[in-house]
């Protein structure tokens, strides 16, 4: 999990390293600890450390972890030669290691020789049938080959054994969302929320899925989960604030024909709208008028069809104004067309 403090620290270090200010090793450590995918930078700065004998020997036993990190980054950047060299060095250091065996299999994977990689993973699994990473690699390989149903099947089998692995649940959820199988995705997100109830991003993703599914009950639940996201982040998630507004308007439309007693108070929406306007005023004053008109049109329930589209987009950071604005653009255009 990357917290706000860690993100700022990472940005600072990244700037420093990119401008030649040193601190490459700290940067690589942080990237490794936060499990981020910065392959190009890891490759560049990791190699510069590894190629410098003085710096390399200063690392001590951490040297091997760096070799592994660089090898994987090189695979991701398709610099197969570099990766091969790194793996060779590791193999020399640890002739019997399973971990290096896994890297070798990953190299085969990156080369595209699927059958050989499969064989390598199977032999690794024979030695240790409960190796979680190898199981996951097999799923990833199915995905890489475009065999999504195979990947789903593999993941489901894997999750029957290792139910507590939330990374796998998340992967499964994302695959289901990509296939538009929202009911199954919702189940996965429920599992994730159960296992890590304090991560706001799962609440947000679950709410997105529920909103996309539609229907009065789902919309009401989505609204609740958007609200819990806001609760957990102190109102700093722009997406959740928009979600509240959209849900309220969608619920309002659905409940229009029915009995009016069930109608919820519009307080939550107006609060969310006020928070959004305040946030935009502070960070993107130029776009404020756009947001205000969009929110107003939402309040008068003009058009929700277009807005539905944005639930499909996934961008979960809290400062991507551009994405949100393209979403908002929808109803305005639609409104003018209808008039």
């Amino acid at each position: 999990m990357v917290t706000k403090t860690e993100e700022t620290q990472l940005e600072r270090l990244e700037n420093q390293v990119d401008n030649g200010g040193g601190g490459a090793w700290e940067y690589l450590c942080l990237v490794g600890r936060l499990k981020l995918r910065r392959s190009e930078k890891v490759l560049k700065h990791g190699l510069s450390i590894l190629n410098d004998p003085k710096k390399r020997s200063a690392l001590g036993s951490e040297e091997w972890t760096l070799y592994e990190q660089v090898a994987i980054a090189a695979l991701d950047c398709q610099s197969l030669d570099v990766s091969k060299d790194c793996i060779k060095v590791l193999r020399k250091g640890f002739p019997e290691s399973k971990r290096v065996g896994r890297l070798e299999a990953m190299l085969l994977e990156a080369k595209g020789s699927w059958a050989e990689a499969e064989k390598a993973y199977s032999s690794l699994l024979e030695d240790n049938p409960l190796d979680q990473v190898v199981h996951k690699r097999k799923v990833a390989m199915a995905k890489a080959q475009g065999d999504i149903s195979g990947a789903i099947e593999g993941l489901n089998k894997y999750l029957e054994i290792f139910m507590a692995d939330h990374d796998a649940w998340r992967e499964l959820a994302e695959i289901y969302v990509s296939l538009q199988m929202y009911k199954q995705a919702a189940f996965c997100y429920e599992e994730l929320i159960l296992s890590q109830p304090t991560v706001p991003l799962y609440h947000l993703a679950y709410a997105d899925v529920l909103y996309t599914l539609g229907g009065l009950e789902n919309l009401q639940a989505a609204k609740k989960y958007y609200a819990s996201t806001i609760d957990l982040t102190g109102g700093k998630t722009t997406r959740a604030l928009f979600g509240i507004c959209l849900c309220t308007s969608a619920i309002g439309q659905l409940a229009k024909g029915r009995n009016k007693e069930e109608k919820e108070s519009p307080e939550l929406q107006s609060l969310a709208a006020a928070a959004l306007e305040k946030d935009y005023k502070q960070r993107a004053p130029g776009k404020l008028s756009l947001v205000t008109t969009a929110l107003k049109s939402l309040k008068s329930n003009c058009c929700t069809e277009e807005m539905l589209i944005w639930a499909h987009h996934s961008s979960d950071d809290d400062n991507s104004h551009a994405t949100h604005l393209t979403m908002i653009h929808g109803p305005i255009q639609a409104q003018t067309i209808f008039q």
Partner: peptide
């Protein structure tokens, strides 16, 4: 949960499922 040290802004890249 919403303080700067605790507020989660992004999830780690799912590196175990990384494809090349």
């Amino acid at each position: 949960p919403h303080s700067e040290e605790n507020r989660i802004v992004s999830l780690p890249a799912n590196l175990d499922f990384m494809i090349f």
